[in-house]
């Protein structure tokens, strides 16, 4: 039996075990060190080729062919732009994404900092703060709907404390107040997950770095501003992108609490065309185009945000 030596003799023990085969040359090529990683990645490649690449491409193709199958650049986009509530959905999505992310970060950072000092009960409070994010989003919508209906508990509380004389009909909210409503509910749900990320970032700041600043005269605020904040910047950047991506795709709360069309968002429109008026050929095209547009917006937002944050950091991350 020939003893084929590989370039890396440490792994030669593997080939020794394959020695028994007659056509060991073939075995060696298949199981040689070079090809193993590619083999292991093959299932993933295959999966993504079929179930990601293909849909993405076919989706794009759908967007650029009209209903008769001919190539068109803007026909479907025209359909989309003219579709019901499209303009408003873009406006709402933009406002929602921008404002809610900022709002959530302020609250999450505040809570993360407060809960970071390990006082008695801080673990328990952290646990409580995390509950909303563990609840299925669909259930969250129902949770809040039970409160927002005319005889719901929100009105009960408001009237109990005499804040209002008559119950507010939340369900009639329209326009910006509807968006605000969705934003508040979303904040309730999502802030915990932001807080967790920031919290772990905060814990990663070594104690001695803060002590050194304190030794040299920094006040608590200076320590936070000059030391802590810059160090947790990577956590903040990562999580903002993820939040942004999710925020752009908001829809379930709007639909379940207020109903279709009351607070239009990009993905809410997609759900509309899939759930409420499927079957129309225009619906299909509009849905495809909307998906495509949403995806493009998400990617664009990500890239833009990364560019801005890289520049601010001065390229040292």
């Amino acid at each position: 039996m020939k003893n084929i030596k590989l370039a890396d003799s440490k792994k030669s023990s593997i080939t020794k075990l394959d020695n028994s085969k007659q056509n060991k040359r073939i075995c060696d090529t298949i199981f040689s060190k070079k090809s193993v990683p590619y083999l292991l990645l093959m299932p993933a490649f295959a999966f993504y080729a079929i179930f990601w690449l293909a849909p993405v491409i076919s989706g794009m193709m759908e967007v650029f062919t009209d209903m008769d199958g001919n190539f068109t650049l803007i026909e479907n986009f025209k359909l989309m732009f003219q579709s019901d509530l499209f303009g408003e959905s873009i406006k709402n999505t933009a406002i929602f994404a921008a404002v809610s992310v900022v709002l959530q970060y302020f609250i999450a950072l505040l809570l993360a900092v407060l809960l970071n000092s390990k006082f008695r009960g801080s673990k328990f409070l952290m646990f409580i703060a995390m509950i909303p994010m563990a609840i299925t989003p669909t259930a969250v919508a129902i949770l809040w709907k039970t409160g927002l209906i005319k005889e719901g508990w929100i009105n009960s509380i408001l009237m109990f404390f005499n804040i209002v004389k008559k119950p507010i009909v939340f369900m009639n909210a329209e326009g910006l107040s509807a968006v605000l409503l969705v934003m508040l509910i979303d904040t309730w749900t999502v802030t915990p997950s932001v807080m967790i990320i920031l919290s772990s970032g905060l814990q990663g700041v070594q104690k001695e770095l803060k002590e050194a600043a304190y030794t040299f005269g920094a006040s608590k605020w200076a320590i936070f501003k000059d030391i802590t904040l810059p160090i947790i910047k990577p956590s903040i950047i990562t999580s903002v992108i993820l939040r942004l991506i999710a925020a752009i795709q908001v829809w379930a709360i709007a639909v379940m609490v207020l109903g279709y069309g009351k607070a239009p968002f990009l993905v809410e429109r997609i759900a509309f065309y899939v759930d409420v008026v499927p079957g129309l050929p225009t619906s299909e095209k509009i849905a495809f185009t909307l998906s495509f547009t949403t995806t493009v917006i998400v990617l664009a937002a990500t890239v833009i945000y990364l560019r801005i944050s890289r520049r601010k950091t001065g390229g040292n991350n």
Partner: peptide
């Protein structure tokens, strides 16, 4: 008083210059 910490506690996001300058900045 001034202290040199066992782990040095040099702030990773500042240059050496900024690290040394920080007490003066404060």
């Amino acid at each position: 008083v001034s202290m040199i910490f066992q782990s040095y506690a040099i702030w990773p996001h500042m240059t050496a210059f900024d690290n040394i300058a920080y007490p003066l900045k404060l």
